[in-house]
């Protein structure tokens, strides 16, 4: 069986779920990886190291600016030439829409945001969440090639073998784009929530510190997120947030976890001052271990948490940071 894996990157910075897709495909047979854009050159070797058998690379610098139409046409030409049985994408902003467009061009279906896969002969049987993770469905693709996008962190990262290597197989850019890229506003925090192994998240509780009575809410929230950030950094993790604090403007939208924010799947999720509304919970169903810190013992977040502390996050979070620091020797 032959699988083509799209390696998703932004100006050379890879979305690690791409390697997870190589890991999945390796179990099935031949793995072809494809990297678009000159800035992706350094990823060619890495793709071999993670297990690709062949790596296609387009060094056209016009592909350094992602545009859905151009990328899809280039991928479509490669897929037609190579006729893989399966095409895998990570479920990222780019992966999802490229899979969608490619499916139209190749007249096939997309198994979207898959969390588990079985193989029946060469047929993929994919498990994916529906109704915000309240249910799951098993789906199969009736078209060929079968196209799937894999949810980040749902599959293990394959081991990296630095002795593996190969050359880049050059491909040409296909088509033109109707989209003009005018610029970027790249966010300052580079830890991606969807790929984070640990997330420490703050909710409206960060605005409520009795010891700072009299200070304005924004100042209190800043302090709260500072404490949360310190805990996240000791654990090498990312900072998440509930919508309440995003809407209030205390932290950018890119940190929001939940139905209208990001769906995350960390090994450890520490919710601080978050009540646990259903729309927040729907974003953290993939978390392995949930820990909650909340003043209110009746807060619904404790229904999904494995461990809970009933208390003031302004006291508990710094104590936890200190305890981890000591215990982890940092």
């Amino acid at each position: 069986m032959k699988t083509l894996v799209y390696i998703d990157h932004f100006k050379g910075e890879v979305q690690p779920a791409s390697w997870e897709a190589i890991g999945v495909a390796r179990n099935w047979g031949t793995v072809q990886a494809v990297i678009l854009g000159a800035s992706g050159e350094k990823l060619v070797k890495q793709a071999y190291e993670y297990g690709a058998d062949e790596v296609f690379f387009c060094d056209d610098s016009s592909l350094d600016d992602y545009r859905a139409d151009l990328f899809a046409s280039t991928l479509g030409a490669l897929a037609t030439a190579q006729s893989p049985d399966v095409i895998l994408f990570p479920t990222t902003t780019r992966g999802r829409e490229l899979a969608a467009i490619l499916a139209v061009d190749l007249n096939s279906g997309v198994l979207a945001d898959v969390t588990a896969l079985e193989l029946e002969g060469t047929l993929l049987v994919a498990t994916r969440p529906i109704y915000e993770g309240k249910l799951f469905e098993k789906v199969v693709c009736r078209g060929r090639p079968q196209i799937a996008t894999l949810r980040p962190r749902a599959f293990p990262r394959p081991p990296r073998d630095e002795s593996r290597n190969g050359s880049a197989i050059r491909i040409e850019k296909q088509g033109e784009s109707a989209i003009q890229v005018e610029g970027y506003a790249v966010s300052e925090s580079r830890v991606s929530l969807t790929d984070a192994g640990v997330i420490v998240a703050g909710g409206r509780g960060v605005t409520n510190n009795p010891a700072m009575a009299g200070a304005d809410e924004a100042t209190i929230a800043r302090k709260g997120f500072e404490l949360i950030g310190e805990l996240a950094s000791v654990l090498g993790g990312a900072v998440g947030a509930s919508r309440a604090v995003v809407d209030a403007g205390y932290i950018p939208y890119s940190h929001q976890v939940g139905q209208t924010g990001k769906t995350v799947a960390p090994d450890l999720y520490i919710a601080c001052g978050i009540s646990g509304a259903i729309q927040h919970i729907s974003g953290i169903r993939g978390a392995k271990l949930v820990v909650a810190i909340n003043k209110d013992p009746e807060a619904p977040i404790f229904k999904v948490a494995r461990y809970g502390v009933v208390g003031d996050l302004f006291q508990v979070v710094p104590a936890l940071t200190e305890a981890f620091r000591k215990r982890l020797g940092k």
Binding site: G109, L135, E137, K138, V139, V140, V304, R306, Y307
Partner: peptide, 18 residues
């Protein structure tokens, strides 16, 4: 082009919060 074979509820969480 995508066909549903089955639906199921996720396994319920075994342990309550400690």
């Amino acid at each position: 082009l995508v066909e549903q074979r089955a639906m199921f509820a996720p396994p319920s969480r075994e342990q309550p919060c400690e």
